[in-house]
Write a protein that binds this DNA or RNA. Structure first.
Length: 657
RNA sequence: GCUCCCGUAGCUCAAUCGGAUAGAGCAUCUGCCUUCUAAGCAGAAUGUUGCAGGUUCGAGUCCUGCCGGGGGUACCA
């Protein structure tokens, strides 16, 4: 049971008769912003007063007269311009916690209306190794997956891996023309990823070279424009003068931008030309871009050799990403990659054309969408399909196969235009009763504020990040052991497992604790931190609770059934109790806007309050037996909420640290 | 050009569809391990929420303009 939901229903009853639809006011019943205002607050008297044309303070009084919360709360008070402050009764809170002791769900009710979700997350491109950019989608997606499932929804997780696009054309081209057979024999995935990067580099080089003349002439034109503007006699009128200055500034900005673009293009070209080996390859493969596209088209058209290579190469790539998923403990119900839909693509385009949703334009097939300047391309001039086509086929398949109420795409926010167009097209196509959600997240940036890359231009591999995290955690575990001699010897064997849980947990938490919509600057130290607001802090709090149980030989089953009332006399006990009871509210926030950072904030707050409790309230040495039992109950609930909450985030707890 | 997002403490980030005195962590400083794990606790210091207007009982949040940064923008994903 959620206290907030209960309070809202009490307010609903109180508002009945005052307004027709109380819903918009009920959302103003919230946990208190500050402990001095109690546990919960209702901010509805002000807007209500405005609606009914009465002074807000009077309105608050009127609501209070109609409000029946005497069983849960102390006498509510009205404060300030009309805030209503509510404080839970200690006896009610104690009883409530008592019922939670016997509740495996810790108060989190199963959804009354179970929805069916398809969650599309992780989706790496299997032609290249997973890097830090894949962590966010994987970790956020998995957390939403687990949380929705826990709340009683039907969830189908589907890893839509990239195994069919132009990136595979690059692999094919590289495999055929640039492969080092010995390296491939030894480590196929490493060689494939080298080939992918190499071909990508060469394609980029020729694109840069091709773009250069146009870029130069644009710059010259722009410089001329500015020169003419400067040569103009300045207008005499003040307003016109200001206008002219502004226009000049903008034109100069464009020059700056063009110069930057030009110089970065020159830089890339120089890098290639400065490397004799690569330069030689660039000269030897002048038409590489169109050749790559041709390989892609051939694969799609069913060319026997390309299909054979594709089939041979795929298993090794899949093994590679599966190894990372095992380590992250992420699993999917389905892994239906782009290739799964290849035989459906032509039908999709045909169907959309027949219905008049798509039409040919400049040799390609497009969907024109109102409000969008550029069309949504579903087939290229050369006949090849695009990821738009695949995504449409995927929607069709998911709807036919699973009839979901919602499809969530956990994907970088840079693809928002694509999803807008995709969803708009899907709706025109007839899929109107499904919630199509782009659960977007911000980009991982480097120190320079640009999308994250290492100096060499390669993104940081995910696996090395995981290794680094675990090895740092191991160092901390070992250091902590040495500081406290006299621990049990079996402990040594556990260090590796503890380090794995702590290290991986740190990385996951770093991503989950951020509002997913913000970009963030990647930092090893931050991602691998084990102090402060980190998964480690919660794991540590959990281990401290478990340590009390171990030391006291506590029989938890007996404690849970013990009739001794829970005492909340100490402020640390009470504040901990309130946090425990608010677990369901945190889960509600997570699913309301698909943001796991609500759960991390909650768990940090809970663990924080536990630490205060731990310092101030002796458990095993409590003054009386009853107090000892009461505190053990608080410990038990804290540990269980921490464990369950972290599990929903995909983070493991350990018994000792 | 069009379009979307962002600008909060020295740094990295929060702030529940507009709520009370804008909060954490890191870094800095001061205390606390013979008492259940110091990966911790208690405390100090840190702000013109980019700027200027507007809307209202109330604005980091909404509107307008400006400044600054980033993304996307017809055949990559």
């Amino acid at each position: 049971m959620s206290i907030l939901v209960e309070l809202q229903s009490r307010f609903r009853a109180a508002l009945a008769g005052l307004v027709d639809d109380p819903s918009e006011f009920l959302k103003l019943v919230q946990p208190a912003a500050d402990a001095q205002f109690g546990d919960y607050q209702a901010n509805l008297a002000m807007p209500l007063g405005k609606r009914l044309g009465k002074p807000p303070r009077e309105m608050a009084q009127q609501v209070l007269q109609r409000l029946d919360v005497a069983d849960l709360c102390k006498q509510p008070e009205s404060a300030g311009p009309g805030f209503i402050n509510l404080q839970l009764r200690d006896d009610w809170l104690g009883n409530h916690l008592q019922t939670l002791l016997g509740d495996g769900r810790l108060g989190a009710a199963s959804a009354t209306v179970a929805r069916r979700f398809v969650i599309d997350y992780s989706a790496p491109n299997i032609a290249k190794p997973m890097h830090v950019g894949h962590v966010r989608s994987t970790v956020i997606g998995a957390a939403l997956d687990r949380t929705l499932r826990f709340l009683g929804h039907r969830v189908i997780s589907d890893n839509h891996i990239g195994d069919w696009g132009m990136q595979f054309g690059m692999i094919l081209y590289g495999y055929k023309h640039l492969r080092n057979e010995a390296a491939y024999e030894q480590n196929p995935v490493a060689e494939l990823s080298r080939l992918y990067r190499l071909v990508n580099l060469l394609v980029g080089y020729h694109e840069d070279m091709a773009a250069l003349p146009e870029l130069k002439s644009r710059l010259e034109r722009q410089e001329q424009v500015v020169a003419e503007m400067v040569a103009q006699p300045p207008p005499t009128e003040k307003a016109a003068l200001k206008q002219a200055a502004k226009a000049l500034g903008r034109a100069e900005d464009q020059i700056d931008q063009l110069r930057k673009l030009l110089s970065s293009t020159h830089e890339r070209i120089a890098r290639i030309e400065g490397d004799p080996g690569v330069e030689h390859l660039a000269r030897a493969h002048p038409d590489i871009r169109s050749a790559v596209l041709a390989e892609t088209a051939k694969l799609h058209a069913g060319d026997a050799e390309n299909r054979r290579i594709w089939r041979n190469v795929l298993p090794a790539c899949r093994d590679e990403i599966d190894r990372i998923y095992r380590r992250l403990q992420v699993t999917f119900d389905y892994t239906l990659g782009e290739s799964f839909y290849e035989d459906k693509l032509a039908g999709v385009v045909e169907d959309l054309e027949r219905r008049g949703i798509a039409r040919p334009s400049n040799g390609a097939t497009c969907v024109f969408i109102e409000g969008h300047e550029t069309p949504f391309l579903i087939r290229k001039q050369d006949g090849a399909f695009l990821y738009a086509t695949t995504d449409l086929a995927t929607i069709q398949y998911r709807m036919q196969t699973w009839q979901p109420d919602a499809i969530l795409y956990v994907v970088d926010h840079r693809q928002s235009l694509h999803f807008e167009q995709l969803f708009a097209t899907a709706r025109q196509w007839g899929y109107r009763d499904v919630e199509l959600q782009h659960v977007s997240f911000g980009t991982v940036l480097g120190d320079d504020g640009r999308p994250f890359k290492t100096r060499s231009g390669d993104t940081v591999g995910l696996e090395s990040l995981l290794d680094e995290a675990v090895s740092r955690a191991l160092a901390v575990v070992s250091a902590s052991d040495e500081k406290k001699p006299g621990r049990d010897a079996a402990r040594e064997d556990n260090r590796g497992q503890i380090a794995e849980a702590v290290g991986i947990g740190a990385i996951k938490y770093a991503d989950l604790s951020q509002n997913r919509t913000s970009d963030y600057i990647f930092s090893y130290d931050k991602m691998l931190a084990m102090n402060g607001n980190t998964a480690t802090y919660m794991q540590y709090a959990y281990a401290r609770v478990r340590s009390i149980f171990a030391k006291g030989n506590v029989d938890l089953a007996a404690i849970r059934q013990d009739a001794v009332p829970i005492s909340l006399a100490h402020s640390a006990e009470r504040s901990l109790a309130v946090a425990i009871a608010q677990f369901p509210e945190a889960l509600g926030l997570v699913v309301a806007d698909y943001r796991p950072n609500h759960l991390t904030s909650y768990l940090f707050e809970l663990a924080n309050r536990y630490s205060t409790f731990f310092e101030n309230c002796p458990v095993l040495k409590a003054e009386t037996h009853a107090l000892r039992a009461s505190r053990l109950k608080l410990c038990d609930l804290t540990a269980r909420v921490l464990k369950l909450g972290l599990e929903l985030l995909g983070i493991r707890v350990v018994e000792k640290m």
